[in-house]
Design a protein around this nucleic acid. Structure first.
Lengths: 329, 329
DNA sequence: TATAAAAATGTAATCGATTTCATTATAAAA
DNA sequence: TTTTATAATGAAATCGATTACATTTTTATA
């Protein structure tokens, strides 16, 4: 495979001139440019990014850290990131961490060792200290899920308000006995969503019942089933469930079905995220739509600015309540 | 940020010695090694992979090309690939092509320009000629979906046999009127699965009805709904449906439900792929399990061998029929 | 036509590592 | 102690590009 030297030789010019043609600089005469282009074609030459990147000290690779690729919630965010990245000549590297510090470290290393220019993380909780230290020397952005105290810029929605609106919707259609299927409170979003839940109840004079709040270690389908079983066994059974992820909600749906009850007539269900599958269930799921594509766009833009050394501010985006069959009669 | 020169200076040795310590060569005396390691720690030094990779002419990056990340079918394969890749000190880059030649070319370019060492493609149909040409000079492996004529090594299952077994299962539980919800026959797997379907019917003396075979442009949920609508409108309605993807099958499930019919009592349904969601539906879905993790493992191993310049042979793996509620009474 | 200014091109340093070959220090053998 | 073999280290080339600066060629101006 040819390199720039051979192209220069073939075209009868210096490597500098070839490089100029390659980078579209206009200081090359039309005649020379043609000769170089012919040589490139003849030798089937492809410039090595390794050489270029070493010289320019960049890789034009962005890392996206997600806990797991099996959660469809990330899909649209990733597309949003990719959209901006590609348009700015960056490529993205999808990295699944399984929330495992060791795996995470493999990807952090890629940044430390200059093979990637920056990181967008959607699971900052794994190892906050390491992340914080990394962010001192490298470009890091938090997306969707974030840690406030790190000083690392983030883009997210107002989780407290979103949760408040979901619960308020349930109250408005007549529910008083509303369960909250929440994530572990080590996550900021879980704490915020609980606050929104509480506020909606308080404002409507409903007393909070602690047994109506169930925590799950994970946001998956099975966790939803498990949590719903618990809820169904309560002696004063709730008539509505607000789950903080669609997968949890879909698990709940299934379990309610198994119990021979009807959604929404016996129990109404609200999810969170508006993943594709939330529209494929029976009944379709009422849920909170995060502006995922936009969130991805913004995160990518922030990261690229950060890479360029600019100051970036955290951003909070709007959300939306999507009402579907699981809460309508 | 420090480089190898500064480390050498700090430790009072040459860069060669630092490099030796970095690469764990045993020709360095214990005393010197310690001095170098102290210098590394003191300067917070991280070796640049750009420098190393340029010198060694490798990137240790593998590209995985998938049509879309929203199809859960790829999840487990990707994990399988990652498992082997990480263990051999490679990193993977997940690339969504949307079956779009332009997007595909961005990723091919990464290989041509030495930023990636090889490609595993799960959607070779996009641009067979380009792929073939790429494979002449670079390491390429086809995984799951493949083109026979390209001469590019592949790993897959026996699609004809898998399809045969799915349909035979339906026949064994008493069905004669079996619809096939197939993909576009431009795909090899679609042609093979149709052959398996035919063989099962023939062997059991069932005449093939052309109106029972529906082609969909895509393997998604909506396509399944749409195709099922067509099937439900047939005057001699089938009592069973074999869909060549779980997403199609889930779409069918939904549509049958809407029509007020029961699965499996009125219509039995079989899917293909055993994606996670196939166990979350109501009823759970009978489906063909591809050994996805293993397929990923094998594909990665094949690619790495190819990168090392070894000859690799195509491989066909076993599959399995998983019987669940959608075909049991 | 001579001279100055602008455009085109080339030379060589550089990015940060690895690695070959030469050299020096150390240990073993005579 | 001297010689020889071996281990440890260093100097410098190399990977393939970009780019500052120097030089040559061309064009414009007087």
């Amino acid at each position: 495979m040819a390199n720039i030297q051979q192209v220069a030789k073939q075209a009868g010019v210096s490597v500098a001139t070839v490089s100029r043609v390659l980078n579209g600089q206009n200081t090359v005469s039309a005649k020379t440019k043609m000769r170089v282009e012919e040589a490139i074609k003849k030798l089937n030459y492809e410039p090595s990014l390794l050489g270029r990147n070493l010289r320019t000290s960049e890789s034009r690779l962005l890392l996206i850290l997600i806990p797991t690729i099996s959660n469809p919630f990330y899909l649209e965010i990733i597309k949003g990131i990719e959209q901006v990245a590609i348009s700015q000549n960056y490529n993205i590297l999808l990295c699944e961490t399984d929330s495992n510090p060791q795996k995470e470290n493999i990807y952090f290393d890629l940044v430390r060792k200059k093979m990637a220019d920056g990181i967008i993380t959607m699971d900052p909780a794994v190892n906050v200290e390491t992340l914080k230290k990394l962010a001192e020397n490298y470009a890091v952005i938090q997306c969707s899920e974030y840690e406030e105290c790190t000083g690392i810029p983030y883009v997210t929605i107002d989780n407290e308000e979103a949760s408040y609106r979901a619960v308020k919707h349930l109250i408005q259609i007549g529910h008083h006995k509303i369960a909250l299927m929440n994530a572990d409170e080590k996550y900021l979003f879980a704490r915020l969503r609980k606050m929104g839940y509480k506020r909606a109840l308080e404002e409507n004079g409903i007393t909070l019942k602690n047994e109506y709040i169930i925590s799950t270690s994970n946001l998956g389908f099975e966790n939803g089933q498990y949590a719903m079983k618990k809820i169904l066994n309560l002696q004063d059974r709730p008539t509505a469930v607000f789950a903080v992820s669609d997968l949890l909600a879909i698990g709940a749906l299934k379990e309610i079905n198994i119990a021979g009850l009807h959604v929404p007539n016996d129990i109404a269900v609200v999810g969170f995220d508006k993943i594709d599958f939330s529209n494929m269930t029976n009944p379709t799921l009422t849920t909170i739509a995060q502006p995922m594509r936009k969130m991805g766009n913004v995160a990518a833009r922030m990261l690229i600015e950060k890479i360029k050394g600019e100051e970036v501010e955290s951003i909070i985006l709007d959300h939306e309540l999507v009402i579907r069959e699981s809460t309508s009669r």
